[in-house]
Each structure stands twice: as structure tokens, then as C-alpha cells.
């Protein structure tokens, strides 16, 4: 044994392999079962994928670093369930690339914020949080209202996720840009296709209050309004355990 270690140290390469071996085995043993974890994730056949507009909104959420202050993971603790709603299930983030569970709550959890407030509230709040909640310390995001949403590459966004296992269909990818426009313009000819491709329950509204323009505000509010709404598996689970 000591001779072995002595030789190990003598050759630097051996030493390298030892460090890799020792450290990687721990991580590997722990992580390996997670590659098959899909087997343990709850099933939610009714769960839909994010629409192109919601995907764009999610990317704005990522770009602005919202995850630094808002978690999207309700833990299995009584006070959290009472404050935010049914605890989060693994299945609810099965299409999240990356996950946005977060690690800090400078602001409240957002896992079930969808439908909790009106679109107008969100728009006013994002433009100036302190106009709605005087004590808030959230930054102002007024420029989202002034910035046109770039929809040109949304098809590529969906296609990349499809390659990585998110079940987008060919027609969803082909119509990505039109669907993004349609979801925020209920009176336009593009609006109908959104419900066809993503389910009739999908929100189709002028999220920022201006039907003619497609802004980054539209996308972000559309995303916020769908949080916790992609499947009702969590509500069912809570009801089942309640019995």
C-alpha cells in the first residue's frame, strides 16, 4: 500500500488519475441514478409545453436574472404550501431547460404566480414595482414595454429544445413566430392556431394591453401567467394526500 502510493506520487500522471478517480466516483455514484430519474418522476399526461411566446418570456426572465431573487420551488413545508400553494412536483419542471428553482427569496416564490394577478397588475408592477407595492425593492423594467420582441428565431429555439427531448411537433416549430404574434393579438388571424397547437386553455390575450404591438412585456407577462399552470398534477396530488 505505501509503496503503491509512493509510486503514485512519483508519476504525476498516476496522481492525477487518483484525484479524478476519488472525486469522480462520489459524484458519479450520486448522479448516476439521476439519469434514470425520469422513471420516478410523476406522470402528467395532460402537461403541455411552453408556447413560443412563453418561451421568449422565459428567456427574458433568465436574461434579467429574475431567478436571483425569485425561487420557483415550493418546498414540502406547511407554511410554504399555505403561502404559495401546493408544493412543487418534479414533473412540473420536466421541460424546463434550465430549471429555475432558484436559491434565494429576496422576493416571493413564483412557482404558482400564474393567474394570481391580472395582466394589468403585472404590467404596472414591472414598469414601476413601487407604484403597486410601495415597499418593494424590485428593479423597474419599464424598457420591456418599449422593446419589440424578436420572434424571428423562435423556431430555432423550439427546434433546439426538441433535439434535447422537449416534445415540440414539426408544426409547432414551423409556426413558432406566427404563434408568438397570435398569442398576444387575440383579434389577429394568427390567434386561432395557438389554441389548436397548444390547447384551448392557453391564454390568448394582449398581455401588455396593446394588441397591435408585440413587446417583450407581452412575452414576460405571458410566461408569468402560465407559471404553475402547465399541468394540474400538483393540485391533484394535494387533493389525494388530503383524503
Amino acid at each position: 500500500m505505501p509503496n503503491f502510493h509512493r509510486k503514485l506520487e512519483r508519476s504525476a500522471i498516476g496522481f492525477v488519475l487518483a484525484i479524478i478517480g476519488v472525486s469522480a466516483i462520489g459524484g458519479f455514484v450520486e448522479i448516476a441514478p439521476l439519469f434514470t430519474i425520469q422513471e420516478t418522476v410523476e406522470k402528467a399526461p395532460d402537461m403541455r409545453v411552453y408556447t413560443p411566446l412563453e418561451t421568449a418570456g422565459r428567456n427574458i426572465y433568465i436574461r434579467e436574472g429574475c431567478y436571483a431573487c425569485h425561487s420557483q420551488m415550493i418546498r414540502t413545508l406547511r407554511d410554504e404550501v399555505e403561502r404559495y400553494g401546493p408544493y412543487s412536483l418534479a414533473v412540473e419542471s420536466q421541460y424546463d431547460k434550465p430549471m429555475l428553482w432558484g436559491s434565494k427569496r429576496t422576493g416571493p416564490d413564483l412557482a404558482r404566480v400564474g393567474g394570481k394577478y391580472s395582466d394589468q397588475w403585472h404590467v404596472a408592477h414591472l414598469i414601476n414595482p413601487r407604484a403597486v407595492v410601495p415597499q418593494s425593492v424590485m428593479p423597474k423594467y419599464g424598457w420591456l414595454m418599449r422593446t419589440e420582441l424578436n420572434t424571428a428565431d423562435l423556431g430555432q429555439h423550439l427546434a433546439a429544445q426538441r433535439k434535447l427531448g422537449v416534445p415540440y411537433t414539426e408544426t409547432q416549430i414551423a409556426n413558432a413566430s406566427a404563434d408568438a404574434y397570435g398569442q398576444a393579438s387575440p383579434d389577429s388571424p394568427y390567434a386561432g392556431g395557438v389554441g389548436e397547437r397548444y390547447g384551448e386553455a392557453t391564454n390568448v390575450r394582449a398581455f401588455d394591453g396593446e394588441p397591435g404591438r408585440l413587446t417583450e412585456m407581452d412575452a414576460l407577462v405571458a410566461y408569468l401567467q402560465v407559471l404553475g399552470k402547465l399541468t394540474d398534477a400538483a393540485h391533484k396530488q394535494t387533493a389525494a394526500t388530503g383524503k
Binding site: I25, V29, A32, P33, F35, I37, E39
Partner: peptide, 20 residues
């Protein structure tokens, strides 16, 4: 993936300890 989840978990729990 040929191995199923239970096998991997069992392996991680038992052999991980011996290894340690």
C-alpha cells in the same frame, strides 16, 4: 439506458459505502 433506476440506487447506496 439498460439499467433501471432501482438497480442504480441500490448500487449507489451499498457500494458507495464500501468504497468510502
Amino acid at each position: 439506458m439498460g439499467l433501471d433506476h432501482q438497480t442504480l440506487v441500490a448500487f449507489a447506496k451499498s457500494w458507495g459505502l464500501f468504497y468510502l
